[in-house]
Design a protein around this nucleic acid. Sequence first.
DNA 1: ATAACTCGTTCACTTAAGTTAAGTAATGAA
DNA 2: TTCATTACTTAACTTAAGTGAACGAGTTAT
Lengths: 193, 193
Amino acid sequence: MENRLFDFISKYISLTEDEKSALLSLDLFRTVKKGTILLKEGQQSKESYFVLKGCIRTYYILDGEEKTTAFYTEMEALTPPCVINKTPSEYYVSCIEDSILLVSNSDTEAEMNSKFPKFELMCRKLSEELLAKERIDFDEFKTSSPEERYLNLLQKRPDLIQRVPQHQLASYLGIKPQSLSRLRARILEKDKR
Amino acid sequence: MENRLFDFISKYISLTEDEKSALLSLDLFRTVKKGTILLKEGQQSKESYFVLKGCIRTYYILDGEEKTTAFYTEMEALTPPCVINKTPSEYYVSCIEDSILLVSNSDTEAEMNSKFPKFELMCRKLSEELLAKERIDFDEFKTSSPEERYLNLLQKRPDLIQRVPQHQLASYLGIKPQSLSRLRARILEKDKR
DNA sequence: ATAACTCGTTCACTTAAGTTAAGTAATGAA
DNA sequence: TTCATTACTTAACTTAAGTGAACGAGTTAT
């Protein structure tokens, strides 16, 4: 697991052995059981998550209904907005598979960043990259229909369709579970012809 | 205009007079006429934009149709994904009002960042904040209907509805111009009752 | 001044998503 | 095992967005 982390980091900066052990000494790895809720609505957390193995999702409860808006899988990072804005969380984060996460605290992070300017650089690069990616994803969502979104997902993250319950996928695609069922039946019908 | 910039920066870091003049000496301000295209599809640009006054928009041309996905107005920043990923641009950026922009080059930026670690810090903070904001916007979009999105925009950015053509607003809301017209008529009808 | 465009709106029609309800299969707890 | 709950699908009906066409108002070009 440590190596998966260092491989990831090496895409942004190169670490000396000392820096690697400084990072490991923070003891950030955590194994989390499926179903664990990592963050609740209203909480004021300072934790960021990096998924080494497994899957976590973010969801809102609006009018008593769960609305899933994102999934984070292997080598993906989530810093909830409440951590950045220092406000109570608008949403929940839960673990939908037994997972291995790297859980960091924004205070510890700030400390690391000021001790090792390299980390600051990595954080900037990473968040710039994630911002660019998020905007592209948003643009694709805006410019396509539910059916196109589903087909697009099938291309880009086929694993998600296997590992995630349909009703969570549906709200991730911005539609109701019944519509997702129908839409898939429609596609199958087309394929047959 | 310089003061608007420094006020903005002061939300993230504090600058000495020397640093301020170092920044000004880069001569980044640019006045741009309405209609100017700042970035074209396929181009490999290194420019980022910060809007001091005016409005710019990003749009794709898909199947010969313009799809507007974002507007950036006063005190908002855009670094196109092609700058981050060093790939040809997927979209266009154009200026929809006479504007005053701060246009920076990613090479110059990198130089500033390494010369003044403070800038690096500001860039990290800013992009983390923008990422959090973008994710919230995306979540809101996913979890609401076109009508709700319009009403939401009316609350959050009432200026946009005034200054931007309807057909651009429509695709920004993920619908066709005809649907936006109808939707507005529907809302007016409801208000009357 | 006139013609050609663009923009916004409206209308009739089509298509697809939302809603409500029902049924079956799978999962979990007692 | 049985009972209860949850997940997924299907269907009938409603609602709203997409489509194609037409219109008037305002703009630009000739």
